[in-house]
């Protein structure tokens, strides 16, 4: 998760409570919003005696996380009024244990309320497919139009060297549901977004085999990667024609 969001947001409050750990942060230019939840089910055990916000610089956290082995068991601990976050990595055979503390920071961040939205279009597709579309179209243009209709969803762009588009139609993969593409539509939508941000969101592709895109005209796009016990959501403000 940290790897997926560290290029978008830098200083974040990890809000800990009985439900687990949540994070909400805007990127510096206030175009995108990251919303992450890891429920208690992601941890074993999980204990939180008092609601607490752990202000962490993600670059610092990455430096420490890179010291962990892929299969290590990670324990995160913070005291009641902490100055630091304690991280312990234990190898699966328990023959190696490493321990780090990183300094916490006071982050004065405004929390935005995200209204419950009935989206006009909800599209599920393989995350690798979405990553490829964003990467391919970003070679041509800064922006992509996403047009969802009953016939399918069309990603199109135009730039200095020409234009391009990719159209996806609903498709069911009976062996692996994450490789299916589905489109639920209540009304057609057509919105334009910055590809730079979408390419950035796709760094989360390794977290989930499929990604959900939720669109309504004139509101931010929701790009959601579901995780076993939580989610990573990105909201992106649309571009509006003059």
């Amino acid at each position: 998760v940290v790897e997926a969001i560290k290029d978008l947001v830098q200083d974040c409050n990890f809000d800990c409570n009985d439900d687990g750990i949540q994070l909400q942060a805007m990127d510096n230019s206030h175009v995108a919003l990251v919303s992450m939840k890891l429920s208690t089910g992601a941890f074993s055990p999980f204990r939180c005696d008092r609601n607490i916000a752990l202000g962490i610089n993600l670059n610092s956290l990455m430096k420490v996380l890179r010291a962990a082995g892929n299969d290590d068991i990670l324990t995160l601990k913070a005291e009641d009024q902490p100055d630091s976050l304690n991280l312990v990595f234990e190898s699966p055979g328990q023959d190696r244990m490493s321990e780090y503390d990183i300094k916490l920071m006071d982050i004065d961040q405004e929390h935005l309320g995200i209204p419950e939205t009935e989206y006009a279009a909800t599209i599920s597709l393989p995350s690798a497919e979405f990553q490829r579309i964003c990467r391919d179209l970003s070679a041509l243009s800064e922006s992509v139009s996403i047009e969802a209709s009953k016939d399918g969803v069309k990603f199109s762009c135009s730039g200095d060297i020409g234009n391009g588009s990719v159209t996806l139609r609903p498709h069911t993969n009976v062996e692996d549901e994450s490789k299916s593409t589905s489109i639920a539509l209540t009304e057609p939508v057509n919105l334009t977004f910055s590809l730079k941000y979408l390419v950035n969101f796709c760094k989360a592709s390794s977290l989930s085999g499929s990604v959900q895109l939720c669109l309504s005209n004139e509101v931010p796009l929701l790009v959601e990667f579901k995780m076993g016990a939580g989610y990573l959501r990105f909201y992106l403000a649309p571009k509006i024609g003059d």
Binding site: H30, L33, E110, L112, I114, D242
Partner: peptide, 14 residues
């Protein structure tokens, strides 16, 4: 040309 909207123009602080 199109202009980029800000996310905070859609979601209000709580």
């Amino acid at each position: 040309m199109s202009s980029q909207r800000s996310i905070s123009s859609f979601f209000a602080p709580v």
